Simulated assay, not measured.
Amino acid sequence: MNINPSVLPPELPCPVDDGAAAHLEGASAPDLVLAATDGSTVNLSTLHGSCVIYVYPRTGQPGVPLPDGWDAIPGARGCTPQSCSFRDHHGELAALGARVFGLSAQSSDYQREARDRLRLPFELLSDSALALKTALHLPTFNAAGMELYKRLTLVVEEGVIRKVFYPVFPPDRSAEDVLEWLRMHRGQG
């Protein structure tokens, strides 16, 4: 069966808020340097202004089967539609002064293929060592022998996490939810 990773199937299980991200709002972004898909590195603690960091399990590739049972894991499916939503709303986010980064445990090479194929106008950050999990106690899950991040979105302003979206569902609405919060937060809603 050929599965298109850009399309969400109907009746995906909705993730529940298990409280695993409740401690994040108000926390400082850690002094953590991650590789970006453009070959640079990004230190999360030194990001200035407003940044949106959407954390996702893993992007799929056309023609490559998803891990067994992937669609049955609440919140697992939807990384490509989520990335595309941030691509499609990138101009609006930039107009509000927000930089965008995607972040997963995948390698920069794997992410670079996705960035180029999906024509993302922002960089993806690789955290293959799950260092952000350790630094911020981010929630993860295991699938097909891989430890992967649960989907969440952070709005970081001047090094402080101001807003956490968790769980994120449906993932293809993620950028719209962030835009709505940013507009309300800035009195533009």
Rank of each mutant, 00 (worst) to 15 (best):
V52L: 04
S83V: 09
H48A: 15
N142E: 06
T153L: 13
V156C: 06
A98G: 03
L118T: 07
A105H: 00
A29D: 02
E113I: 11
C51T: 15
E157K: 09
V156D: 06
A143C: 13
S40I: 04
S83L: 15
S108G: 14
A129V: 03
D18K: 02
D31Q: 12
N142L: 09
D109P: 02
A144C: 03
D116S: 03
L132P: 08
G159M: 01
G102Q: 10
V16D: 11
A129I: 02
A105F: 04
G63F: 11
A29I: 05
E25Y: 00
A94T: 11
S83F: 00
R117S: 11
D116V: 10
Y54S: 06
C79Q: 07
T46M: 01
L120G: 00
S128W: 05
T37E: 03
V16H: 05
E92P: 04
S128H: 11
E123S: 15
R58P: 00
L47V: 04
L47A: 07
E92Y: 01
H90V: 13
A135I: 04
G39N: 10
V42L: 13
P13I: 08
D31I: 02
I53Q: 05
H48V: 14
V52N: 13
A98N: 00
K150Q: 12
E113L: 10
A36G: 08
G91D: 09
S28R: 14
G97Q: 04
P30Q: 03
A27S: 15
A20T: 01
P139Q: 00
V100D: 07
S50T: 15
H23C: 08
L44V: 01
N43V: 01
G102S: 03
L152G: 01
D71F: 10
A20W: 10
P74K: 08
E113F: 14
V64F: 05
P139H: 02
A135P: 04
R58C: 06
L93F: 09
V55A: 01
D68E: 15
S107A: 13
P30G: 07
E113M: 05
S50C: 15
F86E: 00
A35T: 07
A27W: 06
K150S: 03
E25N: 09
L125V: 12
S126K: 01
D31R: 15
S50F: 08
A114G: 00
Y56N: 03
T59R: 13
T37V: 08
C84I: 15
C84H: 06
C84P: 09
K133P: 13
A36H: 07
E92C: 00
T140L: 00
A76Y: 08
S50P: 07
G75V: 01
L124Y: 00
T80E: 07
M146W: 10
V156E: 08
Y149P: 05
D127N: 08
G69T: 08
C84D: 14
A72G: 11
G19M: 12
G49F: 02
D71G: 06
D38M: 01
A36D: 05
S104R: 09
H48D: 15
Y56P: 10
T37W: 04
C14I: 14
P13L: 07
L138F: 02
G102R: 03
F122A: 06
A76I: 10
Y54D: 04
R58Q: 14
R58W: 14
R119Y: 10
G102C: 08
V100K: 07
